[in-house]
Design a protein around this nucleic acid. Structure first.
Lengths: 146, 146
DNA sequence: CCTTGACCTCAAGTTCACTTGAACTGGCAA
DNA sequence: TTGCCAGTTCAAGTGAACTTGAGGTCAAGG
């Protein structure tokens, strides 16, 4: 199996064809050639897509990711950036932990109104302390095709 | 201190006036009256805003949050929804943990290319396994006014 | 040979959560 | 009384990450 076409890449990676075209336009992936109009991809694109997924999942924007594997191609990743992002994730994780505990508690708390529950109020303080504007967007599965 | 105006709410909550108006329009908060054109808020709006921040930080959309405290007002929160969201967060946290470990490793890994590092490749598998399309958007502080 | 249908391009649309701009209002200090 | 300016409205803009739609192409199968 040498070159694979966009449908196959989509199939294997779970990334939609439209997204693949979009990524190519953004310079995140590259097609290796064409058969007629149709893009042909090197199977290595699958690793690349995994890397992109990793970046996204770690909170990098597509632009940041694009900057990661440089204009030339190979993933020349900035180790400082990685470490910084890991620290970021650590903070996020701590916040989410508090959040989860609070939610879990609120779900079983017998207080008539959550506002009267000290645990819930503490959670509120944590949320407020979290500088308020850092969503985390747990947008759970938005995929419609297989 | 009875009613407070929008600037004060903004000051106390850290939420911009434009955002407060936007939230009011969305039905997330309510102003209590006016002095001339100017909205007056009940201090309780601050709790409400904390609750909204909590919701956002836990991955609820504004619409979901709006649905939470019903048309009437008081936060009548669905405990099932909370528990489900807590489970969601748990999964997210587990994934972020793996991610952070992987990033941390990649940051110090001596392998010439990350693709040749078994740990990094394992991380890639985790990311790919993470169903790929769940960003988490770690948009770190975007706030410009105090 | 001719149809078919997957793939192509390019522009525009979508969603989310806000922000910004232009034009206006009105309470309050001087 | 006047004028300031923080506040108001409404519409439109922003940015990220895609998706959708219209109209076109072409390799392959019947």
């Amino acid at each position: 199996m040498r070159d694979i076409d966009i449908a196959e890449v989509a199939e294997l990676s779970g990334v939609r064809a439209s997204t693949l075209r979009f990524y190519e336009e953004k310079g995140l992936i590259a097609s290796h050639g064409r058969r007629g109009l149709r893009r042909l991809f090197d199977p290595g694109v699958l690793d690349r897509l995994a890397l992109i997924a990793l970046g996204r999942a770690s909170g990098f924007s597509l632009d940041e990711i694009a900057r990661m594997f440089a204009p030339d191609g190979k993933p020349r990743i900035d180790r400082k950036m990685l470490a910084a992002k890991a620290d970021d994730l650590d903070r996020t994780i701590r916040r989410l932990n508090a959040m989860r505990d609070g939610l879990r508690h609120a779900a079983v708390c017998p207080a008539p109104s959550h506002m009267e529950c000290p645990t819930f109020r503490r959670l509120l303080r944590v949320a407020a302390a979290g500088k308020i504007g850092e969503p985390k967007k747990a947008r759970t599965s938005r995929r419609k095709n297989a």
